[in-house]
């Protein structure tokens, strides 16, 4: 979990991994290998990428969106078809959605397609850049729950960008807090809430204040 406020460098960090951003100095290692030693398109096809608002191809059906990477990887049509069906079931999309276009889907459904698309070629690593932040709270809750179930089955390495502490605590196994382009601290969720680190404490406090003032308003 990369947690931090806007402009703190979460997304940049994420994009360094799949080389959408090139580091000005230093090196990035993916599975122990420098990521600039691997051919860039090959590197990216081995890393699933999910973004806010899904970024689906508006001129492709759901089925083609999900099957795009397998297709450019040269899979036989029948295998792409089976894989697409399998993934749609996995992320909870009804089979009749296959022929729809992204603009005919709700935000939650689009994001499910985004996740299925990222999983298509069965990458070991998944990069998710605020995938749920544009959704309404109820849909977000639903997708977060499914995300946990999915992760229980798939055991992927996931780098997840969020600015929402609640989401970080709920989904993450380790939370990396970023501030002004620097890594402030890395903590497990249960440590994070008790941490004395000033930035982590500030986050927890802001979160607690929100709840507290809501309760107080209910009392008065």
């Amino acid at each position: 979990m990369l947690l931090g406020r806007s402009g703190s460098g979460k997304t940049t960090t994420l994009k360094l991994v799949n080389r959408l951003v090139t580091p000005s100095s230093g090196e990035i290692r993916v599975n122990g290998r420098r990521n600039d030693e691997v051919e860039v398109t090959m590197l990216r096809r081995g890393i699933g990428y999910v973004i806010q608002n899904a970024g689906l191809f508006p001129h492709f059906t759901v089925e083609r969106n999900i099957g795009l990477v397998p297709k450019i990887e040269g899979w036989p049509t029948e295998r792409i078809r089976t894989r697409t069906r399998e993934l749609m079931q996995l992320v909870g999309l009804a089979p009749e959605m296959a022929a729809r276009y992204p603009h005919q889907l709700s935000g939650g459904q689009q994001q499910r397609v985004g996740v299925a698309r990222a999983l298509a070629a069965d990458p070991e690593i998944l990069l998710m850049d605020e995938p749920f932040s544009a959704l309404d709270p109820l849909t977000r809750d639903e997708l977060q729950r499914e995300f946990l179930l999915l992760q229980e089955r798939l055991h992927k390495t996931i780098v997840f960008v969020t600015h929402d502490l609640r989401e970080g605590l709920r989904l993450g196994s380790r939370i990396a807090l970023m501030e002004a382009g620097k890594l402030a601290t890395v903590l497990a969720p249960e440590e994070f809430v008790k941490s004395r680190d000033p930035w982590a404490a500030a986050y927890v406090k802001a979160f607690g204040d929100g709840l507290e003032s809501a309760t107080n308003r209910g009392l008065s």
């Binding site: 994009k15 590197l43 990216r44 096809r45 081995g46 689906l56 508006p58 450019i72």
Partner: peptide, 9 residues
């Protein structure tokens, strides 16, 4: 959309 495509390889 373009960046998503690029990110997918």
């Amino acid at each position: 959309v373009v960046e998503a495509g690029r990110g997918m390889g």
